[in-house]
Design a binder for these strands. Structure first.
Length: 505
RNA sequence: GGAGCGUUGGUCAAGGGGUUAAGACACCUCCCUUUCACGGAGGAAUCACGGGUUCGAUUCCCGUACGCUCUACCA
């Protein structure tokens, strides 16, 4: 890619709640692109809507990104030459551009109240504030100049709207979709500056992307329809040469049916949508995140990267550094992808396999301590390695190792009882005697001894193996039986056998 | 309603004028393991539909259908 400009990209979330999959992925793609091109990744807080302020949301965004390992180069927390990075703190800078547009004849004051517009929308089927209707509305285009001045002077609330010429073709190149065309006649005169003096997104992105020298602007596909407004703004204010290159990312869809994935879908279908737990400060309701559900951040990031991007080779497991090296915006898919939680778990399982037990233990340390207060650290490490390949989610380590740290509470006695014989009873008595006398308790030795003893008693291995398993773990599940016996030790093994034997008697 | 974008197996997807149309997840069968899982071997697509262009279209063009997004003083 011949890219002369310094690469500067930005992720610009609005702090209104938890960050979901799509948001994190947008951040990730921005980050990867920046790293790939030796550029800067900027985090800008888009908090221009004061009515939607949610305490804690901004902090949550930083924590989420940190967990994912995608650190901004510039942000309200990391500083940078283009501070402030919070749009509410840049409020003063927007009005001048709106005024400039008015002076240029590209924007105008509008005094219609929200109620009046609401009424219009009710009356007229497909009402749009545009060339077709603006001459019948209350604005500086229809009102005499002196009245406009009077309204402005006495503090009448107003907004500034862009003045769209009808029937103008707007065309631009999207890095993912190629040429995209729009006609201004289908657009409306978007509000640029709100009555409270804050800019809308439309003005703010353009002004800030210019101010922060953004070279590439990536955002969700939902922004595509308003892109022409942004392009016009660039053309009027800063010139098209300075405009960043656009890329509109495909949406992440719900697994069943169609439509954008929402947090409700997660609750409905039983999987996380937010990266980390998010507690709504108003309702105090907590929505589970991938982190708390037991995902490793590397797995989460890898999974996200492959949702809408691939390197073309079929490889699916990439570390963050590898992603930074391989990522290219052109290889991002055009169409939306249904989120597949099973696949997400597969990624996590893959990462669990390759992550050392010492690391896996960190995020589950508290849960382990609560579940098995007597388990030693080294025992748990050993246990993790034993059950590793059957865990897709971190909390599964607790369940999967349960019978290694405590005798099963319930024994599926019926399964043994059906085919129980005195021969088997004899066998297990001999087996406990052997265990009591041996000190070779590694799994391989135990297995050899067990098989030899079974043969001596004219019993098929399978006839006694399953009962033995059930005695140790309570049912037909778990890791290799002799690994279990070896892990829990002779005494405990004997105790568990005797316990079941008593019940069978 | 309008505009924009999209459409390859159940899902994610590679490929992109001539291919046996990769691979992964899930599912099914088998092997391994006398549990399960892991692992291994198999199994499934007339590339939305209809027209073109072409010697030849899943690939290019045009329509249609369907889906999604937007259509707020929200982002």
């Amino acid at each position: 890619m011949p890219e002369q400009k310094n690469v500067r990209v930005r992720f610009a979330p609005s702090p209104t709640g938890g960050l979901h999959l799509g948001g994190v992925r947008t951040a990730l793609f921005n980050y990867l692109f920046a790293k790939k091109h030796g550029g800067k990744f900027i985090l800008r807080i888009e908090d221009t809507d004061q009515t939607r302020f949610v305490p804690g949301a901004e902090e949550y965004i930083f924590k989420t990104l940190a967990w994912c390992g995608i650190q901004p180069d510039e942000s309200v927390q990391h500083g940078g030459d283009f501070a402030p990075y919070r749009q509410s703190e840049r409020k003063a800078s927007y009005a001048q551009y709106a005024e400039k547009l008015i002076a240029m004849g590209k924007a105008y004051y509008a005094f219609d109240t929200a109620e009046e517009l609401e009424e219009k929308r009710k009356q007229i089927p497909n009402f749009q504030y545009s060339s077709a209707t603006r001459l019948q509305l209350k604005n500086s285009l229809t009102l005499p100049a002196d009245e406009v001045q009077k309204l402005l002077a006495n503090g009448t609330p107003y907004v500034i709207r862009i003045l769209l010429e009808p029937n103008e073709d707007i065309q631009f190149t999207d890095l993912i979709r190629g040429e995209v065309h729009f006609n201004t006649s289908t657009l409306d005169d978007k509000v640029l500056l709100k009555a409270d003096g804050m800019p809308t997104y439309h003005l703010a992105v353009v002004v800030d992307d210019f101010a922060m020298q953004i070279s590439h602007a990536f955002r969700g596909e939902e922004w595509l329809p308003s892109a022409p407004v942004h392009i016009l703004l660039w053309k009027y204010l800063f010139g098209l040469e300075a405009m960043p290159q656009w890329a509109h990312l495909p949406l992440i869809l719900k697994p069943d049916g169609n439509g954008k994935l929402s947090k409700r879908d997660g609750e409905r279908l039983g999987f996380p949508v937010f990266a980390m737990d998010w507690t709504d400060p108003k309702t105090n309701e907590t929505i589970t995140g991938f982190k708390e559900r037991g995902f490793l951040p590397q797995a989460f990031v890898n999974m996200l990267a492959l949702l809408g991007w691939n390197d073309g080779t079929g490889t699916e497991i990439f570390s963050l550094p590898e992603l930074c090296e391989k990522f290219s915006i052109e290889r991002v898919t055009k169409s939306g992808a249904k989120f597949d939680y099973e696949k997400a778990k597969w990624f996590n399982a893959a990462y669990i396999q390759k992550t050392p037990a010492e690391i896996l233990t960190i995020p589950i340390a508290d849960a382990v301590a609560a579940a098995y207060p007597n388990a030693t650290y080294s025992d748990f490490l050993k246990a993790i390695n034993l059950v590793k390949d059957r865990c897709a989610l971190l909390p599964e380590f607790i369940e999967q190792t349960a019978y290694l740290f405590a005798a099963p509470k319930k024994i599926e006695i019926a399964t043994i009882q059906e085919k129980w014989t005195t021969e088997k009873n004899t066998f297990f008595e001999q087996w406990t005697d052997f265990l009591a006398s041996t000190n070779a308790i590694d799994a391989a030795n135990l297995e050899t001894a067990f098989k030899t003893l079974a043969a001596e008693n004219n019993l098929k291995i399978g006839e006694v193996m399953l009962p033995f398993r059930i005695m140790l773990v309570g049912g037909k599940f778990g890791i290799a039986v002799f690994d279990i016996a070896s892990f829990i030790g002779v005494e405990e093994t004997i105790a568990r056998i005797r316990f079941t034997l008593q019940q069978l008697a």
